[in-house]
């Protein structure tokens, strides 16, 4: 059963709230202080991506964030409603791979029209670079990013 579950309208201004809540719950779950920054950043990126997908697809439903304290593990699931055709699973690639000419003229050879185009790929690159245990799934009914971090068992009464 999830420890905390959040649902928020797909608006960028709520991403910060989701970040703060996730970091607070992670701290309580006994995630190492040194890793909390990474949790905050990874949740923010996953939520940003979900918000972007909802806005891009004109979806009115909320973005879901499920925070679960497990035995020696803290996991976060960020779910969106954006449909993906079967067989197409978005791969998390690093920006360096997707933009093979970063130091040429600064114009990436990938889809590099404006700042916004860079964000989505970079978001996944950040997540996959930060989190060892991450799984990105996509289906016709929506996508999910699952991430987990090691956590000490919370002190009794905390």
């Amino acid at each position: 059963m999830p420890t905390v579950e959040l649902r928020f309208s797909a608006l960028p201004e709520h991403v910060r709230t989701a970040r703060l809540v996730a970091a607070a719950v992670a701290r309580r779950a006994g995630v190492d202080e040194a890793v909390l920054d990474e949790v905050r950043l990874a949740v923010g990126e996953a939520c940003l991506r979900a918000v972007g997908l909802h806005q891009h697809n004109g979806l009115s439903g909320p973005v879901r964030v499920v925070l679960t304290e497990e035995e020696k593990k803290f996991s976060i699931e960020v779910g969106d409603d954006a449909p993906t055709a079967p067989g197409h699973v978005p791969a998390a690639r690093s920006t360096a791979e997707t933009h093979p000419d970063p130091d040429g003229d600064g114009n990436a050879s990938g889809p590099g029209g404006d700042d916004a185009d860079v964000d989505d790929e970079m978001g996944l690159a950040v997540i996959s670079g930060l989190v060892d245990d991450v799984e990105v799934t996509a289906s016709e009914s929506g996508g999910t990013i699952r991430m987990s971090w090691p956590a000490a068992t919370a002190a009794p009464g905390s």
Partner: peptide, 19 residues
Amino acid sequence: DFLDSTGLGVLVGGLKRVR
């Protein structure tokens, strides 16, 4: 204190503009 991919995108955008 905090930087996410949106911030990275803005910096990359700035780099493109000055270049």
